[in-house]
Measured scan of single mutants.
Amino acid sequence: SLSVDNKKFWATVESSEHSFEVPIYAETLDEALELAEWQYVPAGFEVTRVRPCVAP
């Protein structure tokens, strides 16, 4: 099958004044980091952490 098993990760994104967490959907932690950097670094943010979303 061609289905992709995307998992939810939380990326911590920082600017000079703010820090916030955004959801990233990817297959692996490395891919989540790449996606977060691709989305947020060009906008002037720094991705400081990516972690798996742990269900309660």
Rank of each mutant, 00 (worst) to 15 (best):
V47A: 03
S19P: 01
L33G: 03
Y40G: 03
T48E: 03
F45I: 02
V54L: 08
F20M: 08
E31A: 12
K7C: 15
V4H: 07
V4A: 11
T12M: 08
T48D: 04
T12I: 05
G44L: 03
V22R: 02
I24G: 00
P52A: 08
P42S: 09
E46K: 15
E21S: 06
P23I: 15
L35A: 06
H18M: 12
Y25A: 03
A11R: 00
L35V: 08
T48S: 05
S1R: 05
F9Q: 00
L35Y: 09
Q39V: 13
F20W: 08
P56F: 10
S3R: 09
E46L: 09
V47E: 03
A11H: 01
D5P: 13
V47F: 00
P56L: 13
V22M: 04
K8N: 05
S1D: 13
V50N: 01
R49W: 12
V41L: 12
V4E: 09
A32I: 02
Y40H: 03
T48C: 04
W10L: 08
T12K: 06
L29V: 07
A43I: 09
P52R: 06
F9L: 01
Y40N: 04
A26E: 01
E14C: 07
T48H: 04
A55I: 12
S3I: 13
S1V: 10
P52T: 06
E46M: 12
C53T: 06
S15D: 12
V22S: 01
P23M: 15
E14L: 09
S16M: 11
E46A: 08
L29I: 10
S15P: 01
F45R: 00
A26W: 01
E27S: 14
E31C: 06
E34P: 00
V50A: 01
P52S: 08
V41S: 10
L29N: 02
P56Y: 10
S19K: 12
Y40D: 02
F45L: 04
L29S: 06
A55F: 12
S15G: 06
S1T: 10
L2W: 11
V22D: 02
S16T: 07
V41E: 06
S15N: 14
A55E: 13
E34I: 14
A36I: 05
L35H: 04
G44E: 02
L33N: 04
S1M: 10
S1C: 15
C53H: 12
N6C: 15
A11K: 00
T28L: 02
W38C: 10
A26I: 02
V4F: 11
E46V: 15
R51M: 07
F45S: 03
L29H: 06
K7Y: 08
V4G: 12
V50G: 02
L35I: 13
F20Y: 08
V50E: 02
S3C: 15
A43W: 14
P56V: 12
E37M: 13
P52I: 11
E27H: 14
E17M: 11
V4R: 10
E21C: 08
Y25T: 04
E37F: 11
F45A: 03
A11Q: 01
A26M: 02
Q39P: 03
V54G: 07
Y25C: 06
V41W: 09
A32E: 01
Y40W: 14
P23A: 11
A43L: 15
K8A: 06
F20R: 03
I24F: 04
E17Q: 08
V22A: 04
G44T: 00
K8F: 13
Y25R: 04
R51G: 06
F9D: 01
V54C: 10
E34Y: 14
V47D: 04
L35R: 11
G44N: 03
D5R: 14
W38Q: 15
S3V: 13
H18G: 12
A55M: 11
S15Y: 06
P56H: 11
I24P: 01
Y40I: 04
T48L: 07
W38H: 14
H18Y: 14
Q39K: 10
E21L: 07
T12Q: 05
E34N: 11
K7V: 08
V54I: 13
Y25D: 04
V22H: 03
V41A: 09
R51H: 06
L35P: 01
V47G: 01
P52N: 05
K8H: 09
R51F: 08
K7H: 09
E14V: 14
F20T: 03
K7M: 08
S1E: 08
S3N: 10
V13E: 00
Q39F: 14
W10D: 00
E14K: 14
V22C: 07
F45K: 03
T12G: 03
S19L: 05
A11P: 01
S15R: 10
S1K: 07
G44D: 03
S19H: 08
P23L: 15
W10M: 10
H18A: 11
F20P: 00
I24C: 05
S19A: 06
